[in-house]
Design a protein around this nucleic acid. Structure first.
Lengths: 150, 150
DNA sequence: TATTGTTATACTCTATAACTATA
DNA sequence: TATAGTTATAGAGTATAACAATA
């Protein structure tokens, strides 16, 4: 049995490609965000807090599809940096409403611009049209995930 | 400052898209490989062992861009399942040559077919042409990583 | 001196269970 | 009873340091 004739080379498998693509983007993003003292995950948290009304901790976690226990630590770090505030929800005192501070909003805007620059560097091997195609194709497969989850 | 007008929504960022795309593929692959008693990482190891001459542990690790200390544990598990053999290299006795057993080759071929089925399910939201485009675009950005690393 | 395989260790990310305070 | 936030804990996955055997 000649396996090498029957199996797709590792480097052509989607699992390998997605893993290494993400690693490369992570290297670029980490460097771009270092001056702001935050990570890519931190930036994602800041971004969801700015979308629509300030959410509760649980809502923020759901928008990112991460666990609420994970969110606690992320918010702890960002609150200690003065980028957000937790406020008790007067309508339901079990909840914390999480809102960006002025410093947090400024950091979000500036760090997002840096992250976009990192994305452009990541996409540099592609034409502008192909770069948008890649994003659209990934959105299509990820959107399918969200639908199947309900 | 209205951040929501200036920053790209989280779900449109490449970091988010790559993370969730990979997670969805991982769920599908894990299910497809479960009957074979191996993980996606195990399958990747089996596949590199079948490409070209059987490599040393270090060469196998380098082909996958993983650490040689990580490779030890992966090989331990696969060897215990009888899927590969470590043989001392007579030309350099520091090295172990790692080769698939007959059972390992059979598992590689069958599990690869199952993994391909999982990939097709992952790509189901896309047309066949878009599916190949996605793979090609990912290959392009990952290839750029390999070049820059030398 | 340098390299290969190995072990021990630690660090990150994540998930689960259990606690508290509120509803 | 159920939910939101929290804490403790544990499990992956990965990386670093140090060691033995060999080059």
């Amino acid at each position: 049995m000649d396996a090498s004739q029957r199996v797709r080379p590792v480097v052509d498998r989607l699992g390998y490609l997605l893993k290494h693509a993400r690693e490369r983007l992570a290297v670029l993003s980490t460097g771009a965000l270092a001056p702001f003292g935050i990570t890519g995950r931190d930036l994602a948290v800041l971004a969801v807090l700015a979308q629509g009304d300030p959410p509760s901790q649980l809502e923020a976690a759901q928008r990112l599809s991460i666990d609420r226990t994970t969110m606690v630590g992320l918010l702890d770090g960002l609150e200690a940096k003065g980028l957000l505030e937790r406020r008790a929800d007067s309508a339901d005192r079990r909840r914390n409403i999480v809102a960006l501070t002025e410093s947090g909003t400024r950091t979000l805007v500036d760090a997002s611009a840096a992250a976009e620059t990192a994305e452009r560097a990541f996409l540099a091997p592609l034409s502008a049209a192909d770069a948008e195609r890649l994003r659209a194709l990934l959105q299509a497969v990820v959107a399918a995930e969200d639908e199947s989850r309900g």
